[in-house]
């Protein structure tokens, strides 16, 4: 120590310095314990959050998933035409821009179960055939673009749906009695 300066004179400075160091170390330790591990990996956020967001499960299936098993038509009876025409034929049809989920809903379970058990008789897929579903897209409401084929309730064949439009009646014949689900463009006229 330089002559003339005694410890007593600088004690307050040393105390202050110790206090600062203790606070700083305390802060660093507390920070190390509370800031998540991956924070700052990519930026000012938890890097692991990116991976957590990526790992969420996919539910909506792409029609290409169905190719695995439904690439070709499904013929139920040899003398009747198949309802399901096969994936490529469906794509070319007028409803080819739709997705299976529009009418078949959540298919994740179907795909998973069929991969395990292709022959099970018990499990069925939702096959939404209510006129309400078709009208979701074809009902003539304000602002529908001109290119969309519109359901004309005044057409003689469509007369039975006037109640559906008013939501007074729930059960009526499916639109696919005349417009087959996969060939909506050729209405086979009912007798």
């Amino acid at each position: 120590m330089p002559q003339g300066i005694r410890f007593k004179d600088i004690r307050h400075i040393i105390h202050a310095a110790i206090l600062i160091v203790v606070v700083m170390v305390g802060f660093l330790v507390a920070r190390a314990l509370t800031v998540p591990k991956s924070f700052g990996q990519y930026g000012h956020y938890r890097g692991d959050s990116i991976h957590e967001n990526q790992d969420l499960s996919v539910i909506l299936e792409n029609p290409e998933t169905c190719r695995e098993c439904h690439e070709s038509e499904l013929k139920r009876k040899p003398d009747e035409p198949a309802i399901w025409p096969g994936l490529d034929a469906w794509r070319k049809g007028k409803h080819g821009s739709l997705t299976c989920a529009n009418c078949h809903g959540n298919l994740k379970e179907h795909v998973e179960r069929r991969r395990k058990d292709p022959t099970s008789e018990t499990f069925v897929v939702t096959k939404d055939n209510r006129p309400q579903l078709c009208l979701l897209c074809h009902h003539a409401i304000v602002a529908r673009p001109k290119v969309l084929p519109i359901f004309d309730p005044l057409r003689e064949e469509h007369a039975s749906y006037l109640e559906v439009l008013k939501e007074e009646q729930e059960e009526v014949i499916g639109c696919n009695t005349c417009h087959p689900s996969y060939r909506p463009h050729d209405p086979k006229l009912s007798e």
Partner: peptide
């Protein structure tokens, strides 16, 4: 820092 832009520019939440 619970909402952020991913490196690709997608705004995500944590």
């Amino acid at each position: 820092g619970a909402t952020y832009q991913s490196p690709e520019g997608v705004v995500l939440t944590d």
